[in-house]
Design a protein around this nucleic acid. Structure first.
Lengths: 153, 153
DNA sequence: CATATTCTCTTCTTCAAAGAAGAGACATCT
DNA sequence: AGATGTCTCTTCTTTGAAGAAGAGAATATG
């Protein structure tokens, strides 16, 4: 279970898995007529929750001009909403709108396929999988954060 | 283990996981100074192996002009190589170069983190995880293919 | 052997998104 | 209360990638 040959194989499988996930992500973005940065920003919002345009700009490594228009596009497409900040009237809070129609429709087939796959596992096996999902999400998020800060240097 | 509440929670975890993976993918592309389409094409090549520019153009939904320049960029960055086809001298075969330096360096931190996570599981648990990776890769690939063909309609 | 088809590449044009600079509104500090 | 700083938005300019049309090289077919 841990011979070098097995390890190489495992690495191959994982690479393939990652490629497939990202491939599907790109295809989804294209099908939604959403730019790469738009989807990127949307992922940030879904992951970290509502935030100000300023912070979103920082996270996406964008200056204020493009950030405003990025939010304009997302808002116009119905993916996010601009809400005035309660404590500071200069600020605006951008929050994702639950279950946007377009993205949901596009992702549906994949979600169904994954659902069917997960249905085939026992409760104990699902525990393992979701434990992994939770840990991996944190790991990827941390790695992405790290890349972003290094990039700025 | 399967109450409605649990299911909603599971869906949430999975969404978060997917967002994190894609977030990291985008951050990696940006750190490599690689465009969205470039990374998309690279994923296709890693997933389906060497192919002609024509087929790559079809897969990326690009016309011949941008396809040529896409390959130019990838080749110049050292990610792919153009090889003359042995059976048809009009054709060119684009093949990924194993372990491109830039992408590898960028992905290293994430890979290490994931490696550490996987090290924490028993052989039986790893079997479950890699079984999932294999099945999910096929599912995502199929879903992406489906999106692409629908998009063309 | 000649014609038609296929494949890649080049060039020109068009379009979307990012950067730069500055204005207006609001908060904070003295 | 006045001055300074912060936040978002607007405008102009620039860059990068995508589409369209056609040329050149090689294969296949009659």
């Amino acid at each position: 279970m841990s011979t070098p040959a097995m390890r190489a194989d495992a690495s191959q499988i994982y690479r393939r898995y990652l490629s497939a996930v990202m491939l599907h992500g790109h295809a989804s973005a294209r099908a939604c007529e959403l730019g790469a940065t738009d989807l990127y920003a949307l992922n940030i919002l879904h992951l970290s929750g509502p935030m100000t345009p300023g912070e979103l700009g920082t996270r996406t490594s964008l200056t204020t001009g493009p950030t405003t228009r990025l939010i304009d596009r997302l808002e116009q497409a119905g993916y996010v909403r601009r809400v005035p900040s309660p404590d500071d009237r200069r600020k605006v809070i951008v929050e994702p709108v639950g279950e946007p129609a377009g993205l949901d429709r596009v992702m549906a087939p994949a979600r169904q396929k994954i659902g069917e796959i997960l249905d085939g596992y026992s409760p104990e096996q699902l525990d393992v999988l979701f434990d992994y999902f939770t840990r991996a999400a944190a790991a990827y998020q941390a790695a992405a954060e790290q890349l972003r800060s290094e990039d700025g240097v």
